[in-house]
Nucleic acid binder design. Structure first.
Lengths: 318, 318
DNA sequence: AATTTTTGAGAAAAGCTTTTCTCATATTGA
DNA sequence: TCAATATGAGAAAAGCTTTTCTCAAAAATT
């Protein structure tokens, strides 16, 4: 039995008798033959390997993205190198070089905010690069969540529950995500209340509630928060003041960070950015690029969805 | 110029004139030559690639471990495949097979608790396997944190601050980690107070405080918590009751989960399991195994350390 | 029955390095 | 000056697949 015959039998290629083909396959299965992906890659220029590059140390955003990528690609036999580069360009270069040496089929760049570049140069690489939840190079394909739409979802939900004095407590104005969300808030909730920019911390949530409740005049009946950590703090601060959530005030978060949203009392209704779906799309897209299919460049925006828990009233609570 | 001469020049091997060697190196640098790791691996049976397998979806434990592995191995040119298998054996097999096909030099199995196996068979693999923060197969090398020592650190710290009625609010007794920590607590703090087993949730932290403060008799002057989430809830619950932390009661957590420990008011003094160091050791160990060096099997326990913030009093607070 | 077509299987090359061996030239010593 | 040694460089094989080409035997056609 020649090597080439065996190869053709196993790959269902070439011409040969059905009986021979079967016999080869059986023998291969018997001895547990697994073709060497390296030799294969050497020939085909495909390694069924991609790299995921991120500066998101805690994995808050990158892990869901990664889960989506893996889910989409594992069926295609693709494995993923995860490289967490803090904000160190030298380290970034080392990792990228390592990936290139290993001939990854493509690279997905990700991060912790959509308006910052990774501290590493990904232009003119010999492999396709696509961006997911981080700022992409011009002319590249970039995936990100639709902050405006997500925020609109939140505000409309509050309005649908009859809330009319909705406050918006959010992160630093320097984030585009923050500005997008604030824009949706202003467009929909009017501008009776100013947007409260601050920090991504619980401390700011407490502080914001203190400001709102110490101001003169009518208090808000709903607070739309820029992320779940702020929302959690807001809920805690309200409880400490004896304000009931959701009876007196509805609170919506952003991110659907399980670990925060589900542990808050009451659990947070919050906007989910569908990062897993984003990862899935990104994965499928590098794969397409790697296979030589062409893909329209540009920014692809994926819709968010609202996860309803109990911090607003509405359906899943009493 | 022959290919073999070039190879020898670049690898500083073989005999040749210094001038030739230099010339080759310069030329290689000029054209940006990078040796193909696949061809290299085909020959040397080393791919400078390892797999990290985990069922820890949120990356709470695995990400620090991964950071350690990467940190230790990136200098050796090793890249890491991250495979998150929920608790799905089929998915696990797919991922392991994919890694084997790609001829990883070794596999590190990790997880979210040290007394559960990953739902996948890693015995009789053609590559070395080591375990980090998950239960290993008999005869394997396993790394884990020293729960007893970590807990002792916490209790002794409280005692050093003059606390005498120390309570222990922790997770489910089914976890060995919980039992180990409880053992240290009992050995050191005596058994005036029963260990309070419960769940890994904030709800349990609140509940436990309610139980402690509704019981008759003297109240605790310190609470050693089984993890940071419980600790956080305990701190919140105490504050709600008007009990001052750390003036009236000191609280220690476990895990040093930044995102919880640092956001708690006051920030938590807590035990850090040094997962990054654990990852580093694990990485270096697979590498050793991959290079054919022999390694003593068994369970290696790495010491925890106490991270002092403000929830106990003591140094970094007023 | 002789020739053409079809069919099945093997040989060889390619993909990129590294390593071992061989060989020609330069150098040293007698 | 001639033989023996040292030195530098190239040829070839190996590592594992896949693909293209070649070729012999079987089948079909005239």
């Amino acid at each position: 039995m020649s090597i080439s015959t065996a190869s053709k039998a196993l790959n269902n290629t070439g011409r040969m008798g059905d009986e021979t083909r079967e016999r080869v396959k059986r023998a291969a299965a018997d001895i547990g033959f697994r073709p060497n992906a390296l030799a294969r890659g050497l020939l085909s220029n495909r390694t069924f390997t991609i790299g995921l590059l991120t500066n998101d140390t805690y994995g808050r955003f990158t892990l869901p993205v990664m889960a989506g990528i893996t889910e989409a690609l594992v069926d295609h036999g693709v494995s993923v190198f995860l490289c967490t580069i803090e904000d160190d360009p030298a380290l970034g270069k080392v990792h990228v070089d390592a990936m290139l040496d290993k001939h990854v089929d493509g690279i997905i760049a990700s991060g912790k905010r959509i308006d910052r570049r990774l501290p590493v140069d990904l232009s003119n690489l010999p492999v396709p690069v696509i961006y997911a939840f981080t700022e992409g190079a011009p002319g590249s394909v970039t995936f990100c969540a639709d902050d405006y739409q997500g925020a609109a979802l939140a505000v409309e939900w509050l309005q649908g529950l009859g809330r009319r004095r909705i406050a918006h407590v959010t992160g630093p104005e320097s984030f585009v995500s923050v500005r997008e969300r604030a824009k949706a808030y202003r467009d929909l909730a009017g501008d009776r209340l100013p947007v409260m920019y601050g920090m991504w911390s619980e401390a700011w949530g407490h502080e914001a509630v203190a400001q709102l409740w110490s101001a003169a005049g009518a208090k808000p009946d709903a607070i739309f928060c820029g992320n779940d950590q702020i929302a959690r703090a807001v809920v805690d601060a309200l409880r400490e003041r004896g304000v009931r959530v959701p009876e007196d005030v509805s609170v919506v978060g952003f991110d659907n960070w399980e670990i925060v949203a589900a542990q808050t009392r009451p659990p947070l209704t919050t906007v989910d950015m569908n990062l897993k779906a984003l990862g899935r799309e990104a994965g499928l897209t590098v794969l397409a690029l790697a296979e030589g299919r062409s893909v329209e460049p540009g920014i692809r925006t994926l819709p968010c969805e609202l996860v309803v828990r109990q911090s607003c009233g509405g359906s899943p609570d009493r």
